[in-house]
Design a protein around this nucleic acid. Structure first.
Length: 210
DNA sequence: CATAGGATCGCCT
DNA sequence: GGCGATCCTATGT
């Protein structure tokens, strides 16, 4: 496995990067047990947020607050925030400084540390709900907004790597993003990408466009 | 200072 | 498919 480099994250096309994140492996090594608490999973569902011109983005219209400030940083860091008072949502910041592109990681297929993930989520056995949906992803991997927002994705605590897994382009499906109805016309943009037929993909409809 | 609402989830019917 | 949980953040006075 090799870590993705800054040059991967700092490219200008957030849609392309989002597609390329499918099949990569998100790894966290967090908690008191250090490396023993390693958890990882293959990314099977993402959503791209295209900066200031995207009404669904927290950075829409150049909005800049203490919460979303890290979106304006260099590509290759995390943006984690609290949603509905309960869920921590993990994003990858892309592009260069001052261009607030981000990609929400919505679902993983668990690879390592399933026992640790079960412990963190209070579940008894592995089923697809363990890492299906962005709230569950963060919970299983131990990611929280206070501790992990703005962290470098080249750090040893949180990073994304690639192994020899290959994904056929035909198995990538695009659809509108979920839960962004407030964004008007932009809610219809096909900025959600997922791996066809993967059981960990969230949502009831696996709508096909592309 | 007060208030409304959210890039969700899981349980209920 | 409907709804309550739960709390931080943004915004307005």
């Amino acid at each position: 496995m090799k870590k993705l480099t800054l040059s991967f994250y700092q490219r200008p096309d957030v849609l392309k990067i989002a597609r390329e994140l499918l099949g990569k492996v998100l790894v966290t090594k967090l908690g008191p047990e250090g490396y023993r608490d390693e958890t990882s999973g293959r990314i099977v569902e993402v959503e791209a947020y295209n900066g200031v011109v995207d009404k669904a983005s927290h950075a829409s219209g150049g909005r800049r607050t203490s919460r979303n400030e890290v979106m304006y940083g260099e590509g290759g860091i995390s943006y984690v925030y609290l949603c509905y008072g309960i869920h921590h949502l993990f994003n990858v910041v892309t592009n260069r400084q001052e261009t607030p592109h981000a990609i929400l990681i919505r679902a993983l297929e668990p690879i390592k540390g399933i026992d640790v993930m079960l412990e963190r989520t209070g579940k008894k056995e592995l089923d697809t709900s363990l890492t299906k949906g962005p709230g569950n992803v963060s919970k299983a991997l131990g990611i929280s907004f206070k501790q992990h927002s703005g962290l470098s994705l080249l750090s040893k605590e949180i990073f994304i790597a690639e192994d020899d897994f290959k994904l056929n382009k035909k198995d990538i499906i695009a659809s509108p993003r979920i839960g962004v109805d407030y964004a008007g016309e932009d809610a219809k943009l096909p900025y959600r990408f997922f791996i066809r037929g993967n059981p960990f993909v969230s949502g009831s409809r696996q709508v096909n466009s592309r």
